[in-house]
Design a protein around this nucleic acid. Structure first.
Length: 201
DNA sequence: TCGGCGATTAGCT
DNA sequence: GCTAATCGCCGAG
């Protein structure tokens, strides 16, 4: 497995990067607990003009990390409950970010089960951004963490997603953003069970 | 300093 | 389908 290089994250086109992240492997190893999974759903947040992005309100204590250079982790608390994991992209000063919305678990499933409080492995283990945060042990302490480190990184294991299976759609939960809520900035792998947004129960 | 609210989810009706 | 859970951010006063 090969870690993605810094230059991967520093490029301009955040939607393109979000689509290329599909099929890549997310790994966290903090506390000597190794967890990994394949990214199957992402959402792009493209800068200050994008009303759905936290960066649209300008640089504040919470959002300042999004203005950092690409390859940095942005983790924040949503609804007081959910730790959401984002990847910062583009060069320093340009607030682009990609939200990881769903992951297909590969390694450390027992650890994910313990963290999420679930009893059995199923497709909901890391489906939805709140669950991804829980399963991989993310915390806002990790905000600003580098994605080139041993504790947290994204790797290419040679797996590639058929372009025909990559679907673009409007983002979820951002209706307040007006016209920007209609942009096709959500990307996911078609027919993958681990993708959020549809009810399975 | 204070109050409203959010890139959500699970569980009940 | 509806709502509680739950806390830090940010704008208003």
């Amino acid at each position: 497995m090969k870690k993605l290089s810094l230059s991967f994250y520093l490029r301009d086109d955040v939607v393109k990067i979000a689509s290329e992240l599909l099929g890549k492997v997310l790994v966290t190893t903090w506390n000597n607990e190794y967890t990994s999974g394949r990214i199957v759903e992402t959402e792009a947040y493209a800068g200050q003009w994008d009303k759905a992005s936290h960066a649209s309100k300008g640089k504040t204590p919470r959002t300042s990390v999004i203005f950092e250079k690409g390859g940095t982790a942005y983790v924040y608390l949503c609804y007081g409950i959910h730790e959401m994991f984002n990847i910062v992209t583009n060069k320093q000063g340009v607030p682009h970010a990609i939200l990881i919305r769903a992951v297909e678990p590969i390694g450390g499933i027992d650890i994910m089960l313990r963290r999420t409080g679930k009893k059995n492995f199923d497709e909901s283990l890391a489906r939805g951004p709140g669950n991804v945060g829980k399963a991989f042990g993310f915390h806002r302490r990790q905000c600003g963490h580098s994605l080139q480190s041993e504790e947290l990184y994204i790797a290419d294991d040679g797996y590639s997603v058929d372009k025909k299976l990559i679907v673009a759609s409007p983002r979820i939960g951002v209706d307040y953003a007006g016209d920007d809520a209609l942009l096709d900035y959500r990307l996911y792998i078609k027919d993958n069970k681990f993708v959020s947004g549809k009810k399975i129960n």
